[in-house]
């Protein structure tokens, strides 16, 4: 299938993935197709273990595909590159570098090298944008979980990628920090207008940040439903109380409950 991918930045085209061989073979992803358009913010919701990280890693350039393909601007993705920035599910900022050196890392590499003054300026900008002022020289071990993820976001933004791929960046945070981070990310993505793919477990988070939401089903996974979020843009904390927001939330919670329920039942047997 070579669908019309006219102006999609990232497109998943009938992706299938399984792990293991022989009797131990486990099909994980069973034909997932969807697009991420330019400047678009798309969230992926799905039950735990359904293959969300696997999909995102493929878009990043860490291949797992058995059949189908993931394309970036129409070209098959074969390896990671800095035009697609990634924030991983685990803490992945370098513990041996200070906050500012972590953020500058991508800009000091051969493929992306900038002048000293440009690097300083970019680092300054993202330190401010992510509210990390005063922690420039701090080491990751001195930071809270929320701050580490902000450094990871800043590091991903700094190389000026065309697409951002975020894998549950706020999963480990408490509810309040999480809302604060969502607002921060919303501000940043409005200011930067980057195509962003966000993986999340949180219905609230998905609605708050996205133009569209892709709901994945249980393993072996396919696309269960795609929802356009019509909550007015830009979103503010008040958006969470608007009727459009509540309506989508009600609908999604209804869709998600049986999905996660059956995962739990499966896990118990």
């Amino acid at each position: 299938m070579t669908g019309d991918i006219s102006n999609a930045r990232i497109s998943f085209d009938d992706v299938r993935v399984g792990f293991g061989a022989g009797k131990k073979r486990k099909e994980v992803i069973d034909g997932v197709s969807f697009d991420l358009g330019p400047g678009e913010f798309v969230s992926v919701l799905g039950p735990s273990g359904c293959g969300k990280s696997t999909l995102l890693n493929m878009a990043a350039g860490f291949p797992a595909t058995d059949s189908g393909e993931v394309r970036f601007d129409g070209e098959r993705i074969t390896r990671p590159e800095s035009r697609r920035g990634v924030v991983f599910q685990q803490y992945a900022i370098f513990p041996w570098l200070t906050v500012e050196k972590n953020i500058a890392f991508g800009l000091t590499l051969k493929s992306n090298r900038r002048s000293r003054s440009e690097i300083d300026e970019t680092v300054r900008r993202y330190i401010d944008l992510m509210g990390l002022g005063g922690f420039e020289k701090a080491l990751p071990k001195e930071l809270s979980g929320g701050m580490r993820q902000r450094v990871a976001l800043a590091r991903a933004y700094a190389t000026d990628p065309d697409v951002l791929l975020l894998d549950e960046p706020f999963a480990a945070l408490d509810a309040q920090t999480r809302e604060f981070m969502q607002e921060l990310l919303h501000e940043a993505s409005r200011a930067e207008r980057r195509a962003t793919l966000l993986i999340t477990h949180s219905v609230e988070e998905a609605i708050y940040l996205s133009h569209r939401i892709v709901v994945l089903g249980n393993r072996p996974t396919s696309v269960h439903e795609v929802i356009d979020v019509d909550v007015p843009w830009p979103r503010t904390p008040q958006s969470r109380l608007q009727p459009e927001f509540l309506e989508v939330r009600g609908h999604l919670e209804g869709v998600m409950r049986p999905l996660s329920g059956s995962t739990l039942r499966k896990a118990q047997t």
């Binding site: 860490f62 390896r79 990671p80 370098f94 590499l109 051969k110 493929s111």
Partner: peptide, 16 residues
């Protein structure tokens, strides 16, 4: 491995 992957995603070459 997460640090290696983070480095690659930022555009690092094998040597880097």
């Amino acid at each position: 491995d997460i640090y290696v992957r983070a480095g690659r995603a930022l555009g690092a070459s094998e040597f880097e």
